[in-house]
């Protein structure tokens, strides 16, 4: 079997053959949909109701649907700026994390390095560390570097803290590249650096896409670092900026916060649609486990 097929083959899951009774299956599907789709659908519906329909009850269909709530929160929260910031943090922070992780992943996947297991232990520490435990010293570090309350400071923090997970994901992916391909390159005269740039890197693109996407989502969701390290209105990401929605000014008729959280989720929905196959079918699990 050639390595090509191994690398490009999309994992197809075997379905088990026995089906449950029809009624049970329907009921189960209905319950699951109600619990997970219900709240989301409800929010979308609430977000297009005008104020005066609020008292009709949460499940009353909108009579005169309107996009006014969207306009109001977009302007009120300065959502344009928040979005820009979040996109900036997520794209650059993930890029930094992946960049920092590439060579370490190569090193840990392809070489017998003395002391390798200690490097791994260090990695795992970075992975399981609760953010809150390092908030204070990171705050101090950033302040002394004059990076507190700056975009670049938050990006660096995201990059470094995204790195351990990226190393694990990329390492898992790189170990699936057949050893012989690398040996062949070595025989042909390639140095470690050339093997990395000409062989491993191009073959790792699918793994990089998965890792980058997961990191993007993680930064988009991230809240604690941004809350503690940023202060200025104009550089806040969506997660922190959205907190304002939880105030008397916005929460009165529900349609404004609903519209706000629908907006906040739009970029992720787009990303989700683009990468759906890769992420939610669980294919990334293999690369994380490895």
């Amino acid at each position: 079997m050639s390595s090509v097929a191994l690398l490009t083959e999309r994992r197809t899951f075997k379905r088990l053959r026995f089906a449950a009774p029809r009624l049970f299956a329907t009921l189960l599907a209905f319950i699951l949909a109600a619990i997970w789709l219900g709240p989301l659908a409800l929010m979308v519906m609430t977000s297009i109701k005008p104020n005066k329909e609020f008292l009709n009850g949460p499940f009353a269909l909108p009579i005169a649907p309107t996009f006014e709530p969207y306009q109001k929160v977009w302007e009120g929260l300065n959502f344009g700026v928040l979005m820009q910031n979040s996109v900036l943090y997520a794209t650059t922070g993930s890029a930094l994390a992946v960049l920092l992780a590439l060579v370490p992943a190569f090193a840990l996947s392809r070489f017998e390095i003395p002391g390798k297991k200690y490097v791994f232990a260090l990695l795992l520490t970075g992975l399981i560390l609760p953010q809150q435990t390092v908030l204070i010293p990171l705050y101090a570090v950033l302040r002394s570097l004059h990076l507190l309350d700056t975009r670049i400071g938050l990006i660096i923090v995201h990059g470094v803290y995204g790195m351990p997970a990226q190393i694990l994901i990329l390492r898992g992916f790189m170990t699936t590249i057949p050893r012989e391909i690398e040996k062949a390159a070595q025989i042909e005269g390639a140095t470690d650096f050339q093997i990395f740039t000409k062989i491993i890197l191009p073959l790792s693109v699918p793994g990089i896409v998965v890792g980058y996407t997961l990191n993007f989502i993680a930064i988009w969701k991230e809240f604690v670092f941004a809350l503690v390290f940023l202060n200025s209105e104009n550089i806040l990401p969506v997660t922190v900026g959205m907190l304002k929605l939880n105030s008397d000014r916005y929460i009165t008729a529900f349609n404004l916060p609903a519209a706000g959280l629908v907006i906040s989720q739009i970029p992720i929905v787009i990303l989700f649609i683009l990468t759906y196959r890769g992420i939610s079918s669980g294919n990334f699990v293999g690369s994380v486990k490895g």
Partner: peptide, 25 residues
């Protein structure tokens, strides 16, 4: 996996979607 539920792909997407949502939202 044992197909004891209808629309598994749709439901899988729906159940996974909140994982991508910020906890603030």
């Amino acid at each position: 996996r044992v197909r004891a539920v209808y629309f598994p792909t749709l439901l899988r997407t729906a159940i996974f979607f909140p994982v991508t949502m910020s906890l603030v939202a």
